[in-house]
Amino acid sequence: MKHFKPYIKAIGKVFIVFMVAMYTYVNAYTQDMTPLVLKVKAKLDQVNSYTADGVMKTDIVFIKAPISKVKVFYKKPNTFKLERSGGISLLPKGGVSINMSNMLATTNFTAFAAGEETIKGVKVRVVKLIPMSESSDVVLTTMYIDEANLLIMKAVTTTKENGTYEMEMTYGKFANYGLPDKVVFSFNTKDYKLPKGITLEFEEGAKPNDANLLKNKKGRVTINYFNYVVN
């Protein structure tokens, strides 16, 4: 027994080191990130309402649409409206109306850390946000937060009804308010179904490969904002 004592001690030490390492690791990745999210929310809450003009580009494989001017209206807590200036707009349901402020409209969520990443050369914290309300359409939001500037650089939102959306923000003059200059909104088009023959269109050569393209390509809506009027 005497001979085994040093070994038992050594194993004990290794075990303690392992447990400390595990604790540190687990603690780091299940860390409650609510304070950080609340700081971001507080920054966004500086703005009671805003309007902005923008230019919208729609890149969806089955839609041929021109570049159009849009106007955006926001009012606290979660009124967000995107209007095309005098024209028809065709956008993924529920998607583009998701913005940073209405994502954080309530404090009824659980936020925990999910690592660190780098986006456009900026080190960001990855935060998973789970809404506590069962009636919420959002199932999970992953935010990539620039901790130093309290800016959401990217958000991936999974909804019950409308699939998964990804938003990438680029900030400029209005970064102080957390308002982006550019938002790229991406979503998967594979589940989108198009009507057949409703307008009695039986034209030939109507891009026969589009069905395959549809399955592989992501839809993308890019909005470049300018002329923010912040209240």
């Binding site: 494989v61 089955f62 041929k64 021109p66 024209g87 028809i88 065709l90 198009l194 307008t199």
Partner: peptide, 16 residues
């Protein structure tokens, strides 16, 4: 207004 046409495999929106 703009003209929206549903073709057999895609949608065309023409500026007015």
């Amino acid at each position: 207004d703009d003209m929206m046409l549903l073709k057999s495999s895609y949608i065309v929106i023409l500026d007015d």
